[in-house]
Amino acid sequence: MFVDYYELLEISPNANSETIERIFRYFAMRYHPDNRDTGNESRFSEIVEAHNTLKDPVKRAQYDVQYKHHLSLRRELSEEASDAKGLERDVVIQAKLLSLLYVKRRQDVNNPGIGDEELERLSGCPREHLEFHLWYLKAKGWIARIENGMFAITVDGIDRANSEHRRDVSVTRLLDHTK
């Protein structure tokens, strides 16, 4: 897991070596295990590791490459989290998966499963995204893996699909009456 040494030392990524040393000494005294009031051995170890990396120009340059990559991942995460359309697409994909599994169970109650690859193909959702949706639907108890390893809708999943369908029908009826 990536540790942000700049955040840990509460310094700017542009901090010079004198600033790094000054801040390190301050935190080292504060968190040293011998300090009875504020000593914290794990925090002290983290600070020493951050200091040893950032004080060495070669190690710092290598760390800065990882740091920039980490920043770009955080930026992407932030952008995706603020995109409401992404959440809407997720809801649609999850409803589609429930619907596919619902129909499969209704067609053949004794053989209700659909495999991972078939779900990927039918839903049009790439594998790396599908895993999230399958995890979510399983965690909610709406789908489950059956004995043969395939996914099938559960009773709770059928209830969920039916409640979603009723809501969609009610909205459609309301919209029809407004015309």
Results as ranks from 00 to 15, higher is better:
L8F: 03
S12G: 06
I20E: 01
T38Y: 12
Y5I: 09
I93V: 15
R89S: 08
N40D: 15
K59A: 13
E131C: 00
H129Y: 03
S78C: 01
R74N: 11
L101G: 04
K96H: 14
E7H: 10
R60N: 04
V171P: 00
F2T: 05
W135F: 13
N111W: 01
L9G: 03
A152R: 08
G141S: 01
Y136E: 12
N162K: 14
L130F: 05
D37Q: 14
H70F: 05
Q107I: 04
E147Y: 08
S72A: 10
G157Q: 02
L9Q: 04
H51R: 13
D56C: 11
L54Q: 02
V169S: 08
E147A: 15
E128L: 09
E21A: 15
Q94I: 02
I146Q: 09
M150T: 10
L87I: 14
E10F: 08
R36H: 10
L98A: 04
D37N: 15
E118K: 14
G39C: 11
L175T: 14
Q107N: 15
Y63D: 06
K59N: 11
R74C: 08
H70R: 10
E120V: 08
G141W: 01
Y5K: 09
F24A: 07
P13R: 07
V58Q: 07
K140E: 13
V103K: 09
K179W: 06
L97T: 00
V3Y: 04
S163W: 06
K138A: 06
P126N: 10
A81S: 12
L174T: 13
F132I: 05
R105L: 04
R30N: 03
D83L: 05
R167Q: 14
N110A: 12
D56S: 02
S123V: 07
G86N: 06
R43L: 14
L134E: 03
L174G: 15
E117H: 01
C125Q: 04
H133I: 02
I11N: 07
L175N: 12
